[in-house]
Design a protein around this nucleic acid. Structure first.
Lengths: 264, 264
DNA sequence: TTTTATTGTGTTAATTTGACACAAAAATAC
DNA sequence: GTATTTTTGTGTCAAATTAACACAATAAAA
């Protein structure tokens, strides 16, 4: 099908349901994953525009804010039981006036005569609540939504231009991640079930943005008593094979409840 | 003036301005102070009802969410330059359905025939964003708003019954206070300009909910290099007089930027 | 003058941290 | 098969931090 027609179809369909949604609130999800020793965020690219956005959505009148976030997450990643947490609400009265919106809206303006209600609705002031999710990148099959043509992981070190204040939203999510480090299920959410000590250390190094001494890190983590040691992993590399570890889930969650006395 | 008439007058006046406000968002302020070795929160008591609420308000269509919070704070306390921070957004779709609202609304229902728009507006679903403020209780002269007859400090250990989910909002604010302890200007905001080491320690004990060893606490704080020692305070008690201290503001803010490696 | 309560600082053992050492292991090169 | 390379798991040890208790100094009351 002609993608232009398809997009219009989706807009018309959404327009018909506008009554079901709160008119001034939205949610945006900062979905974080970890791959190739880098933190990554899941982004969407708008059709016809090349501008990137965070996966987001609107809130049904009978829906809890948290459920709207879960719904968006489920739609974009197919995952339903992952770690999601609200981190901040962005309440500037001129969020929608940011010059960066002009580009995608130029495109939407073509729809004006065909879908004036939608245009009016979407250009209103929105107060958006940010949620962040931590996911195992390997378990995800990202799917674009009706308004976007691409949905993929982008390294946090090389973000493309983002719509509106979405750059700020990501920055705030990362601040939150850092200050809440000791209270979040970082490792258990971002890594696959089994991993090496090096994987875990590199993850913390990526979040903290600084190197951690290998042998001391290992000792410290083992002492926390949340790791289960498994068979060795024969990597094929010319060196001693590392053990594989997994987390003891109960002990992990017990520990972060009161905060891991960890690095900062 | 008859308080009943007065209340009605205020409602009518607000009703005339409904167009200026966002219809689905509000803010609530958890204003915390410290007195008699106890953490306290500033609450309002609704006229004619005896039900307590957090100071809160609505958001003008051209107003930043943060500014709405500052406005409410200013109106209730007269203070304009205090520490305020957003901490969470409460997005349940049934917040307004909580049975505890019935009581004050029973009262408002008497206004139904006189102010149907106001009643309809206020009983809608609201997504409310919580802000917390840390203030020096001595500098405050609490003032009730038009809908309330009392505005006073209540000890967190003995809260009266609260409307809607306001108890939950306070609990969440305190959680936030605890986990963000190392990044917040606790002492400088909650204590008067000059204070004794015991004052400071008791404050931290109140927040952490556990005793801290006196001499070690003293040493640790002096070592941080953020305290300025002043003359001794002759308390009149039969014991050695303690020094008074104040904070070096620049050093204090510099320190919390990266987090005080403190207690938890 | 003695007593009482609290303060400021001292002491010391236990624990944690940071930096580096080194043998063991897995694969490759010869 | 043997030597080489690289990374792992654990060892060591000095420095820093923490936790617990000691004690003299001091302000006011008895």
């Amino acid at each position: 099908m002609d993608p232009e027609i398809d997009l219009l179809h989706h807009i018309k369909s959404f327009e018909a349901q506008l009554e079901d949604y709160l008119p001034g609130n939205s949610i945006d999800c900062v979905i974080l994953g970890y791959e190739s020793q880098q933190l990554k965020v899941l982004l969407l690219k708008w059709k016809n525009d090349g501008v990137w956005t965070l996966p987001g959505g609107f809130i049904k009148k009978t829906e809890h804010l948290d459920d709207a976030a879960q719904r968006v997450l489920q739609e974009r990643t197919g995952l339903s039981s992952v770690f999601v947490k609200q981190f901040y609400t962005f309440g500037s009265s001129v969020r929608n006036k940011n010059p960066q919106i002009s580009k995608p809206l130029y495109h939407l303006k073509k729809m004006e005569e065909l879908s004036p209600n939608f245009l009016k609705w979407i250009t209103n002031r929105f107060i958006t609540t940010g949620y962040f999710a931590l996911v195992d990148i390997k378990r995800i099959h990202p799917r674009p939504d009706a308004f976007s043509e691409v949905c993929e992981w982008k390294s946090l070190n090389a973000l493309p231009p983002l719509i509106l204040d979405h750059k700020e939203i990501i920055t705030k999510a990362l601040d939150h991640l850092k200050t809440q480090l000791n209270y979040l299920p970082i490792g258990i959410s971002l890594l696959p079930k089994k991993f090496t000590m090096q994987d875990l250390r590199k993850l913390y190094e990526a979040i903290l943005g600084k190197p951690l001494e290998r042998s001391n890190f290992q000792r410290k983590l083992l002492k926390l008593g949340i790791l289960i040691r498994h068979e060795k992993q024969m990597t094929g590399a010319a060196n001693k094979a590392p053990y594989l570890y997994s987390f003891s889930e109960e002990k992990y969650y017990e520990l972060i409840k009161n905060g891991i006395g960890f690095y900062s």
